[in-house]
């Protein structure tokens, strides 16, 4: 295969990854890794480097829109970023000592979990009285809805912070945004309305990914020949996805995609188990 052919096919694949990632809320990174490893047989370390870049591009692009709308809770994001960045740097360090087959199996497991999280019931209710710690840290806020500004408070700050540390470690280890774990921490544990938790999670993904991306760049995980089609493709796909989202409800697509991603996850686990990475 020539470089030109590889670039064109990967560009198209990354575009689809960005499109599907933004329509389902899973992010482009989780699709980029199986695409590169299972389809193109690229070493998983290059795939992780490329997926991190895809996560940053996706997150920064989408966050710029959400921040302007005032849905994102910037204080909450910043506070939890202590957990995710420390976790991400730790994860990137652990990655050196982890065999690539173990990483593939772990990735498959996280993928299955993310698929399950995507189709779960979402927390729409705003909590009226939160915990004392949430008040002290000024984490309670409000967000715009169709019926005007709605105030919300949150609880279980410590538990949420712990899950965020785990999300950071996974992000640094696997090169993904760990959006599913972030939403679990905010939505299910801290009882934040899901619109706030998804946008704040998206806002945080860029920072978390950047924390481990610098480490990976210095280790040579980021190959320009792969980064070029992946970054441009994912950005283009995510842009199309965000335009489509305002016009359609991707509910059916979500179920189909979650089924597909589960098969991919099983294949990653199977190949990892048979030492094919």
């Amino acid at each position: 295969m020539t470089i030109l052919t590889f670039t064109i096919i990967l560009l198209a694949g990354a575009y689809l990854a960005g499109l599907v990632g933004s329509l389902t809320g899973l992010g482009g990174g989780v699709v980029v890794i199986p695409l590169l490893t299972l389809v193109f047989h690229v070493d998983i370390r290059y795939a992780i480097g490329a997926a991190l870049l895809a996560s940053i591009a996706n997150s920064s692009g989408a966050a710029s829109a959400y921040v302007k709308e005032g849905i994102t809770n910037i204080r909450l994001g910043m506070f939890l970023e202590i957990a995710t960045t420390v976790g991400a740097v730790a994860g990137a360090v652990i990655a050196v000592y982890t065999p690539t087959n173990t990483i593939a199996i772990l990735f498959g497991a996280i993928l299955l979990f993310s698929a399950a999280m995507t189709i779960r019931k979402k927390n729409q209710e705003a909590l009226i009285t939160g915990s004392a710690l949430a008040l002290k840290l000024k984490l309670n806020s409000s967000y715009p809805t169709k019926n005007g500004e709605v105030g919300y408070q949150l609880k279980n700050v410590g538990a949420g912070f712990s899950i965020m540390t785990l999300a950071g470690i996974m992000s640094g280890l696997l090169g993904i945004g760990s959006g599913a774990l972030k939403v679990l921490a905010m939505d299910s544990t801290m009882h934040i309305p899901f619109k706030v938790s998804t946008t704040t999670s998206n806002f945080m993904i860029g920072v978390t990914a950047a924390a481990s991306a610098v480490v990976y760049l210095q280790r040579g995980y980021m190959d320009p020949g792969i980064a070029f089609p992946v970054v441009l493709g994912v950005l283009g796909g995510a842009f199309t996805g965000s335009k489509l989202l305002t016009r359609m409800d991707p509910k059916v697509l979500k179920y189909i995609f979650c089924l597909a991603i589960s098969f991919v996850a099983i294949e990653m686990i199977y190949n990892g188990y048979n030492h094919q990475f």
Partner: peptide
């Protein structure tokens, strides 16, 4: 993305016809 695009186009015009580097082997730094 603009910088990546410019670099990418130069990269393709210079080495687009070359064989793909062995990406299944990790060379690192």
């Amino acid at each position: 993305s603009l910088i990546v695009l410019i670099g990418g186009l130069i990269y393709l015009s210079q080495s687009g016809q070359l064989q793909l580097p062995p990406y299944h082997q990790f060379t690192g730094t």
